[in-house]
Design a protein around this nucleic acid. Structure first.
Lengths: 147, 147
DNA sequence: AGTAAGAATGATAATCGTTATCATTATTGT
DNA sequence: ACAATAATGATAACGATTATCATTCTTACT
């Protein structure tokens, strides 16, 4: 089942309609990689259909996220960003506080332990957000050089 | 060494001054528990000195966080929140997406693995943020009852 | 296919958190 | 005590997000 069909299924099951703007925004979003702000997505969507409005991107990204096709990533420069989950295995982020570089990693051990924690507290898992913050080797070197 | 002294040390070593508003805001912040928004802190600070301004709370919380006496927590209702680190061992959060309840937990296994990841990528650790999102037992029951 | 009912859209205004500005006040080293 | 300079608080400015609303699109029903 592809992403468009998943989205359509989600919409139907929630009494909502599949429309052209929603299709365009989903297509634009899936076609770009990385952490995208609303305006990034709007820009991509306008390439397909210049008539798309910003408000609809806000509304549609919320739906796409609720449908489980995207998740919110870090805030970057005050604006929320999103990344889609198609053809992109689950991962967490290691962020350099110096230059903003983002490294993706996956730790099966951590994933496993998170499941245990959900079970311990009787929670039904709905997702997680994990960001490690540090200084990358390059920025460490830069910092040493300047002292 | 208490928090006030740590803050004063931090300020001096960064060429900044210890002032009455900064003392008041730190005291108000330390005196409250949980995740506090800027306006929460402002409210507490005004109880001690009604003359405190919101802008100074924004500025001072940034300093307190840089000094390592607080860390940013989840965004709640669009506003950033902070929690102080005094007499409060390090922990992560398990958040119920239904009712907003927050459970604190600590997993030495995860902490250990995070260190390994920093080392693997040559990063100098600066902190981390981990939030598990799920549905608590009560909200699960509520959801089952409504269907 | 045609149509009525209601949802979705896009432009715009409104809101709200955060940051910048600036005249006044407080702090510090001498 | 004083001069130099940083900090403050009020307010304006800004930017992201949400609400509003007239118009347009979808859908279910005929």
């Amino acid at each position: 089942m592809n992403e468009l069909m998943k989205f359509e299924t989600y919409l139907r099951s929630h009494g909502q309609k599949m429309t052209r703007p929603r299709r365009v925004i989903l297509e634009a979003f899936l076609g770009a990689e990385g952490h995208l702000s609303i305006d990034d997505i709007l820009r991509e969507a306008k390439k397909i259909d210049p008539g798309i409005g910003q408000a609809t991107v806000f509304r549609t990204i919320r739906l796409i996220t609720s449908a489980g096709l995207a998740r919110e990533a870090l805030q970057e420069d005050g604006a929320r960003t999103f990344e889609h989950l198609a053809d992109h295995p689950h991962h967490d982020h290691l962020l350099c506080v110096g230059c903003g570089k983002i490294i993706e990693f996956l730790s099966p051990l951590i994933e496993q332990e998170q499941q245990r924690i959900f079970v311990r507290y009787g929670f039904e898992p709905r997702g997680h957000m994990m960001e490690l913050l540090g200084l990358c080797p390059e920025c460490q070197a830069k910092e040493r050089g300047e002292h």
